[in-house]
Design a protein around this nucleic acid. Sequence first.
DNA 1: ATGGCCTGATCTTCAGGA
Length: 259
Amino acid sequence: MRIATWNVNSITARLPRLLAWLESSGTDVLCLQETKCTAEQFPADALREAGYESAVNANGRWNGVALLSRVGLSDIVLGLPDGPAYETAQEPRAISATCGPVRLWSVYVPNGREVAHEHYAYKLRWLEALRKAVAADAAGPAPFAVLGDFNVAPTDEDVWDAALFEGATHVTPAEREALAALRAEGLSDVMPRPLKYDRPYTFWDYRELRFPKNKGMRIDLVYGNAAFTAAVGDSYVDREERKGKGASDHAPVVVDLDL
DNA sequence: ATGGCCTGATCTTCAGGA
């Protein structure tokens, strides 16, 4: 089966490309982030016509995550148990479900904005809540993975110019240690192949011609447990989907599983 | 040499993204 994760930067704006990509890629399960819609606005009918069930955690113009599946969708959980609030409310940044043989989380980790910003402390709290939420499944025998926009580049190799990011969010030791703590629960970083160039970046800012210059970052990650990673046959970043008019600023990360 | 974007809502301007 083929699963994928994709920060679509508005499912409304991306719907034509999303439907075309689901068909062309043959994806069975898709983890979505930044749907930027309310639950009511989510295009569940169009997706159902394309053959996919939807599970959605979304509440407006920011954030929003979802799972699409054509191989079953059950035991849906909205949000992180005991997840931290930002300002007054919990934001829709996580959703999990069982899709055929695998249990998955689709996550949109807070950005952090600046290291001195309250959003950065919130980001670290959120990652710790994620660790606690997935620990049991990560150590379990059944195939399990956390996929999404982690908003952290795991190593300096995951940004096009590490010096440029000195002191910025996404590369700080504390953020990377939070990822290491996740891995310590039994998860491994499933490294995708790049379809071009030497590094599998997944995000290129819209500004400053970052995509044509390949000034990207690898921040969309697939963290799988032992049973999941043992089933991985191939993984790649579909950079073709970052091209052209109407593209998201993130490309899908695809994982093929022998399950 | 420099700077170059996109989205949705509060809608001709802004917050947020990373």
